[in-house]
Design a protein around this nucleic acid. Structure first.
Length: 672
DNA sequence: TCAATCCGTATC
DNA sequence: ATACGGATTGAC
């Protein structure tokens, strides 16, 4: 027997097939009527199978012509999908030409029945250190939003519920977790919500600590990927039940069911961890942009450096820059110098033993003597197959342009990554050796070498599985991979950014931006120049990216990067999609597309002709045989239509039950 | 003329 | 996967 009122439930069924990506109507039995509220999980019979779904809304009538089935079962009366998140999932799916079901899988954690039943979720923790809500926040580092032009204005906008949008260039040494926490506290003070997203667990730990300082313990939740299913669900419920209005976490937290948002924020949007690896591959920045528009609420995109994407938001006027005055930046920044080529001569010099330039060696020694730790940033293991001379270990360089040489592939000659010239007869320019070797000089090896160069100084490694969050304020050599740099209690005295060539030598399009992002993230942990802080980057001074670091000008560098991409017709200056699959199918797919005005089809190219991103291929036949790819490129104004077209293509194919072997993607990352 | 069967398509 | 509708076929 159908329910007396609103007998129809509109259900988002858990099917990711493109042509079924819409709501389906079901009758609600009178006995289910009370439980089947919007946002609840239900089981429905769909095409003969029992599937999961969420009730999107209850309505009086259906437009469906045929017969309606009944909801099979209401899984639980818990409304886990808020209307706002449902709309966000729809928007994200549309933006990425994906299905809402796929996005909902990213947004909502699996149900944990025992947790749902336990009263713990509702329980109000009363152990909060009764902090008066308007207490002045401690400023251990002496900075605040006041340090930035438009910083205070943004905070005011959050307080007043205005949907301001900003791209924030954090000062070197900035206590950015505290700044984000202040935004959340400001929202909380006026009874509204906030969502803060950071790239990884280490950042979240810092953010958690900062939030603990400005909000009561039950005033926020953190959502980390490594929480168990019970705890993850428990925290999710605290948000969806409206008990807590501030959520902080890694990329999935962008979908946290916070109601009545005042502000959403992301820090370090250039970190590729913010790019979701599961379909439809949304990026946190884009999710929060959609969310802030829909809410509407304020949006902050922060970082020590600036991405081309954020620069475009600034240049187009969509977002306002929050940047400190030049003099403030200068006062906060360490002294930065480049010392790429001046390797110390003399085999027994301590500096040479540690592969350090004299400048780097001196900077480290001075910092240690002043009682501060030294940060040594080394490339991530396996990240780049850098080559060096087998006897003197200097980097292998191109004899024409001094660029870095790399193995072109199995049994292929060395090739310059800058000019592409092949080197068949290597011969070290410094020592004449004919031998070279691949040296991913990992953190461990660097640590050993540094230990020998600075006897008696403790060496701390932060890399891979053993990431340190913080190191004490005492002399030490802290060897860290990008992203794993611990915070130093009172700041580092110096930072040595090693293997700068290798970082910039990466063939990919975003290499310069990525290099600057990593350098600035490390350099930002060093005390200001006035306090003796020094940064030595092992790279050539003349490179624009090194110049941007020295001048501490991430905005200028991002503008250059964006201009370069505009010239080449690369994102974010244009919108792109990729279609990849068997050559014949790609060809047919392309033929059926209606691209917006100004749209271009690039390719198809066979994937066999493209250089493989990582050189690790050992004899096994590459799975790329007969696989082709086309790129679709449209002006930024055609972005929406591009997504619609790609979705239409996917729908047609899934309706026809074509082989699901075509990979369609908006904003493909392969380019980078 | 009508039922049994096939095939394509939608999936409430 | 299954269910349905329309088309097709073959027997009366």
């Amino acid at each position: 027997m159908p329910a007396a009122v609103l007998p129809i439930a509109r259900v988002a069924v858990d099917v990711s097939l493109a042509h079924l990506d819409r709501a389906f109507d079901y009758q609600v039995a009178a006995s289910d009527s009370e439980a089947a509220q919007p946002g609840t999980r239900v089981r429905v019979r769909f095409a003969g199978r029992l599937l999961d779904g969420y009730v999107l809304e209850r309505v009086a009538t259906s437009y469906h012509e045929g017969r309606l089935g009944f909801l099979e079962r209401v899984v639980s009366p818990e409304p886990v999908l808020t209307t706002e998140v449902a709309a966000l999932a729809r928007a994200v799916a549309d933006r990425y030409a994906g299905s809402m079901a796929d996005v909902l899988r990213l947004a909502i954690p699996p149900r944990h029945a025992r947790t749902e039943a336990s009263a713990e979720v509702v329980e109000i923790h009363d152990d909060t250190g009764d902090r008066p809500p308007d207490a002045e926040v401690a400023e251990p580092d002496g900075t605040s939003w006041q340090s930035y032009r438009s910083g205070a204005a943004f905070l005011t906008a959050v307080r007043n519920g205005r949907p301001a949008r900003a791209v924030w260039q954090a000062l070197p040494g900035e206590n950015w977790p505290l700044r984000l926490a202040e935004l959340a506290a400001t929202a909380a003070r006026v009874g509204r919500g906030a969502v803060l997203v950071v790239p990884d667990a280490k950042d979240l730990q810092r953010l958690d600590a900062a939030l603990a300082g400005v909000l009561p313990a039950d005033g926020y939740v953190t959502l980390a990927a490594d929480l168990g299913p019970a705890e993850r669900y428990r925290r999710y419920l605290r948000l969806s039940r409206g008990l807590v209005k501030v959520a902080a976490g890694t990329r999935a937290a962008a979908f946290a069911p916070v109601t009545d948002l005042a502000v959403v924020a992301v820090f370090d949007d250039g970190d590729d961890l913010l790019s979701e690896p599961r379909a439809p591959y949304p990026h946190t920045r884009e999710v929060l942009m959609l969310r802030s528009s829909a809410a509407p609420c304020a949006l902050l995109i922060g970082g020590h450096s600036r991405t081309a994407e954020s620069e475009l938001l600034v240049q187009s006027g969509w977002a306002k820059p929050i940047v400190a005055d030049r003099t403030v930046v200068r006062a906060a920044a360490p002294h930065i110098e480049a010392a790429g080529d001046e390797y110390a001569m003399g085999a027994d010099s301590a500096a040479a033993a540690a592969r350090l330039s004299p400048a780097a060696f001196a900077a480290a020694r001075a910092a240690l003597q002043s009682g501060r730790p030294v940060l040594v940033q080394v490339p991530r293991r396996g990240y780049l197959p850098a080559l060096s001379c087998a006897s003197c270990r200097r980097p292998v360089r191109c004899r024409h342009c001094s660029g870095p040489l790399a193995l072109g592939g199995p049994r292929r000659p060395l090739t310059c990554r800058w000019c592409g010239v092949a080197e068949t007869h290597f011969n070290c320019a410094a020592c004449g050796s004919l031998e070279y070797r691949t040296t991913v000089v990992g953190a461990r090896r660097t640590a050993e070498e540094l230990g020998r160069a600075f006897p008696g100084v403790p060496v701390i490694i932060s890399a891979g599985d053993t990431v340190r969050t913080v190191v004490p304020a005492e002399p030490a050599l802290v060897v860290a991979t990008p992203g794993a740099e611990p915070l130093a209690q009172d700041g580092y005295g110096a930072a040595l950014l090693l293997d700068g060539y290798a970082l910039l030598g990466r063939a990919s399009l975003g290499a310069a931006q990525e290099a600057l992002r990593r350098w600035m993230a490390a350099a930002a942990l060093v005390v200001p120049a006035t306090a003796g802080g020094r940064v030595v980057v092992g790279s050539d001074t003349s490179l624009p990216t090194v110049q941007a670091l020295i001048r501490w000008d991430p905005a200028g560098h991002a503008a250059l990067e964006l201009a370069g991409r505009q010239e080449l017709g690369f994102p974010p200056a244009v919108a792109m999609a990729s279609i990849q699959g068997p050559e014949a199918e790609v060809g047919a797919a392309v033929g059926s597309l209606q691209l917006p005005v100004g749209g271009q089809i690039l390719g198809p190219v066979s994937l066999d002709d493209l250089p493989s991103p990582s050189g690790s291929r050992g004899g096994a036949a590459p799975p790329t045989a007969g696989i082709a790819r086309v790129l679709l490129r449209v002006p930024p104004t055609g972005r929406r239509q591009l997504a619609v077209e790609v979705k239409r293509l996917a729908s047609a194919r899934s309706a026809r039950k074509d082989e699901q072997n075509l990979r369609l993607r908006i904003d493909p990352v392969e380019l980078f």
